[in-house]
Design a protein around this nucleic acid. Sequence first.
RNA 1: GUGGUUAUAGCCCAGUUGGUUAGAGCGCCAGGUUGUGGCCCUGGAGGCCGUGGGUUCGAGUCCCACUAAUCACCCCA
Length: 446
Amino acid sequence: MNQNIVTPSILPGFLELLPQDQMIFNRMLDVIRSTYERYGFIPLDTPVIEKSEILLAKSGGETEKQIYRFNKGDNDLSLRFDLTVPLARYVAQHYYELTFPFRRYHIGKVYRGESPQKGRFREFYQCDIDIIGNENLNIINEAEVLSIIYSTFKALGFDRFTMRINNRKVLNGFFEWLNVQNKADVLRVIDKIDKIGSEAVARELGSMGINSGVAQEILRFIKIKGKPEEMIEGLKEMNVDNELFKLGVEELEQVCSHIRYFGIPQENFALDLTIARGLDYYTGTVYETILNDYPSIGSVCSGGRYDSLASNYTEKKLPGVGISIGLSRLFYQLKEAGILKADTASTPTKLLIIPMKETMSNSLDIATKARQSGIPTEVYFNEGKMGKKFGYADKLGIPFAMVIGEDEVNTGMFRLKNMKTGEQETVNIDELISKIKGYSIENTSL
RNA sequence: GUGGUUAUAGCCCAGUUGGUUAGAGCGCCAGGUUGUGGCCCUGGAGGCCGUGGGUUCGAGUCCCACUAAUCACCCCA
């Protein structure tokens, strides 16, 4: 027994995938990235490690508890816990070199040292977009964000999802009007109404010192349901005498009217007054997206409008709007729900070339040609039985394989085997390439 | 931080009121089949039954402690 062997394991809360899942995951990443770029968002990559003073500039309870913080020499360092704070630092730091509105996307891992749970990780991918204005930012951006979410989830292969929005000004104005002091606590409670029901919400409101008349008023308000136009009418009819509230209702109305120009179907969009995402920095529209068939997954894409992105790092006023897809969680939940495509390959390879001993150099030539034509190609180098070589292609899900022997080299004609059907076709090199490329185009999807 | 559940092969699991040498399926390796995979058949490797202690003639099984995993709450993507 070798005493030096360490049991291989990773820390809990860290997700790593087997090849087949990683292939799917990466395809989702690609879809998200290309959708973001189609809207003209600029890629950004920032360090995973930042100075602690940067990440903790805005001290807040949860953040400080969850952040991975450590020392190296005299440096006080931390792992980023989201992509928004690094964005704020970046924009403030490079303010004079950037062009506004600054539209950036950022796909990367973030770290939170909390106790791991189902679909909750200590290291996970976030796919963020944000639009940062200089001094001001037109509200139509808040409608465009919905268009981006819509396009992204469509491209990921979903049809039945609902983008729900609310407006924090409406909530805050309403609470001001009711003289509710601990707005943040109340928001947190009403955000849970779908989960725990209105009675429990009333109870919790009571236990935090809200008198029952006000609690009933709050419940009546968050129960306004219906089509967006009806809900906006309903909000107006409440005759809330508060400027912030009125402004919020107006913003909701504008966002709802703008989304028509983006071609978003009605069934994918809804107002929901119970959404109160993010406890502090959102100041306007807030977004949540749920998959209709899997409501228990919860929000798969969240975000909102904020007035001041980088107030901890600059005097400049930088309003913005952004959203984030928690891809690790989304992927995990989709896998749990059993709705990931089953018959996917474990490798990008489309063609496996099996050389005979004497045809190795010819085989490598053919592989080079195939690769130059854009076909991911592998050559099987190990010696052994034919069965094992084809078995390799089979196990990895490589769609095409062919043996290169002397006959093939002499005639320039190859027996291309379709691994799925078992059929073999005799083709020359050009036919071989177009055949595989045609197949790849047909079968590229999630 | 609070509470619950679980721990047996690489994976998912079975293992009777405590009883001899701990099992199946999947996966892996080899052979049946040396230029053709999947299906089938045959064989094989792989276990300090999480760790430590206790009860007992005897513990995978009962008790205690520890450790780890996991779920819920909190908060969040």
